[in-house]
């Protein structure tokens, strides 16, 4: 039983590390900041999530597991807000995403907040 838990937890941790590394590679490889946001969210969701779940299996039913779950919940609730704030900040300062059609570019420009667009 303990060995089975161990194996499951290591599968989770290795998976999490793999997603972290792919996300890190994406941070380097992808072309613009918006594409890199997606790579970062790879780290923020499954990378962190799988590692924490793996550690929970290691800790068993203790206070430690509850704390790990708390970290997981914090990161899950805060990371989209941070990502959205970052994207908004970039758009308001005329850093526009690389997209194919003029239609899409216009759609992005129209989302700028009024006070910034007026400047």
């Amino acid at each position: 039983m303990a060995a089975a838990l161990d194996i499951i937890s290591w599968i989770f941790i290795v998976g999490g590390i793999a997603f972290c590394l792919i996300g890190g590679y994406g941070l380097i490889k992808l072309k613009d900041v918006y594409a890199r946001l997606h790579a970062a969210s790879l780290i923020d969701t499954l990378g962190v999530g799988l590692i924490l779940v793996g550690l929970m299996f290691q800790a068993g039913l203790t206070l430690v597991t509850a704390k790990l779950a708390l970290i997981l919940v914090f990161i899950f609730f805060t990371s989209p807000t941070a990502t959205h704030a970052l994207a908004r900040a970039a758009i308001n300062h005329d850093v526009l995403p690389e997209v194919d059609t003029e239609d899409e570019r216009e759609m992005v420009r129209s989302t700028k907040t009024p006070s910034e667009a007026a400047k």
């Binding site: 972290c20 996300g23 890190g24 941070l27 900041v33 890199r36 946001l37 970062a40 780290i43 923020d44 990378g47 962190v48 590692i51 924490l52 550690l55 290691q58 800790a59 790990l68 970290i71 990161i75 990371s79 941070a82 970052l86 900040a89 970039a90 300062h93 850093v95």
Partner: peptide
């Protein structure tokens, strides 16, 4: 630009959290 760097620091912070959690174990 600044946004790439903020993104990198954000990711770095998340990873520090993970490093400390793993180090505890």
């Amino acid at each position: 630009n600044i946004y790439n760097r903020i993104l990198a620091v954000n990711v770095f912070g998340t990873l520090s959290v993970m490093l400390i959690a793993i180090y505890g174990f």
